[in-house]
Design a protein around this nucleic acid. Structure first.
Lengths: 117, 117
DNA sequence: CGTATCTATTGACAAACGTCAATTGAACTG
DNA sequence: CAGTTCAATTGACGTTTGTCAATAGATACG
């Protein structure tokens, strides 16, 4: 996914007046852009964004058995969404006996938040 | 995409001790979650995130002819990404003669930024 | 041990995505 | 008008995504 972020020198000006002011280069480095895009992508589904919202507002660890009935999707689908959030580093989980508890890892979200501001 | 955000009442407690504290309900409303997820989704690609970064840092209108050579993708691919950003309301464009100029519409990003903080 | 409960994984499928080459549409230039 | 240039659209393609039903793992309880 996207080795296409390499910067290139400015193209030749068209054969009239220039189209605009000088080139601007992206401030975000390629690796950083990919990390933040991955975080944004993980938030790019209403269920996952709502999951993160619930976990953030609760400020503690929440059992999966509490999360499942909040949505009209199957248990396996919700588990799949939780895995995506885990893979993106946005949440972590912890097993206690039969149950699994999820909580937000704020660092990843903070990074995206910092870029947005 | 996702009429599955309807809230449901708490499931029955398992037949032992409860698994955790009482249910938490999402603070974000369904429609809001879908709008913000759409914004996050549009940022969920490294090229699009970098495009937004460039446009934000420049604080003016930038010609497409300046944007194309910044990436190793074809002109049509970049146009496709710009369209996705436009569809999400993150950027707007303006034609001037032969050229097209893009600029950031800060409102959408601000909304996501506000939710993240 | 056997059964019940909670969560994760697998397999399947349709829809959406990212990409390119080729074409179209607009608008300037001579 | 004919040719050129910039940007958007179309069509095609392989990949990824979101979803479910079914299954598997892990743990608790009798």
């Amino acid at each position: 996914m996207s080795s296409a972020l390499t910067l290139s020198p400015k193209q030749k000006s068209p054969n009239g007046q220039p189209c605009c002011e000088p080139v601007v280069y992206p401030d975000v480095e390629r690796a950083e852009a990919e990390r933040m895009a991955a975080i944004a992508k993980a938030l790019g589904d209403p269920i996952r964004l709502t999951l993160v919202d619930v976990l953030r507002k609760h400020a503690g660890k929440v059992c999966v058995c509490e999360l499942v009935p909040l949505f009209d999707v199957s248990q396996s689908t919700l588990s799949h969404h939780l895995k995506k959030l885990r893979d993106a580093g946005i949440v972590d989980s912890e097993r206690q006996g039969l149950w699994a508890y999820y909580y937000v890892n704020p660092e990843e979200l903070d990074e995206l938040s910092a870029w947005l501001s």
